[in-house]
């Protein structure tokens, strides 16, 4: 079986280049690495959290070519040539509504929450078809009961400057 030959000769690091938070990055990645681990343990960007490793909680949400994805389900080699943005790329000043409306408590879900929320804010047209609650459903939060999060998104959408980014 080919699988066995693979154990005997595991592939060494795969060289990849991608754009991370606006800057080009080149590195060799373990073929088995998830984007989440590469970000956290290889690139020391620990803002992105692991809450489940099964795509359920959204704590690991990053943007891949501008769209939110769960980085625990992305093999790192797949981001070659793509744009990856993490919570570290967000403008702190833009997070004021989240601070004001109680969007965070323990904070473990928060980086993922603000990533999805900021994406909604940049795409207000989505609200013609989707509710904030539906769009946020991939980000589990055990602390806030979601009102603080939903209110923050609604507030953020009211502020000038929302919907500015095109992806």
């Amino acid at each position: 079986m080919n699988g066995h030959s693979a154990i005997r000769n595991p592939q060494s690091a795969i060289p990849i280049t991608f754009t991370l938070n606006g800057k080009p990055v080149s590195l060799g990645v373990d073929p088995a690495a998830r984007l989440l681990d590469t970000l956290r343990y290889q690139l020391a960007l620990t803002g992105t959290k692991e809450g489940c490793g099964e795509g359920e909680c959204g704590a690991c949400t990053v943007y891949l070519d501008g769209v939110p994805v769960n980085s625990c389900l992305v093999p790192t080699y797949q981001v070659r040539g793509q744009r990856v943005e993490t919570v570290e790329s967000l403008e702190p000043g833009a997070l004021e509504p989240f601070e004001r409306c109680g969007a965070t408590q323990c904070g473990a879900c928060t980086p993922g929450v603000v990533m999805t929320a900021s994406w909604i804010r940049e795409h207000p047209e989505l609200l013609a078809t989707h509710s904030i609650r539906e769009l946020m459903a991939g980000n589990l939060c055990r602390c806030t009961g979601y009102d603080g999060i939903v209110d923050s998104v609604a507030e953020a959408l009211r502020e000038p400057g929302s919907g500015k980014r095109d992806t």
Partner: peptide
């Protein structure tokens, strides 16, 4: 008063145990 550590949490700067350099 706003939550003290809110901004650290919102920006991903807060370091939980698995985030600590070691």
């Amino acid at each position: 008063m706003r939550r003290r550590e809110a901004l650290a949490k919102l920006t991903g700067r807060e370091r939980y145990v698995d985030d600590l350099p070691l």
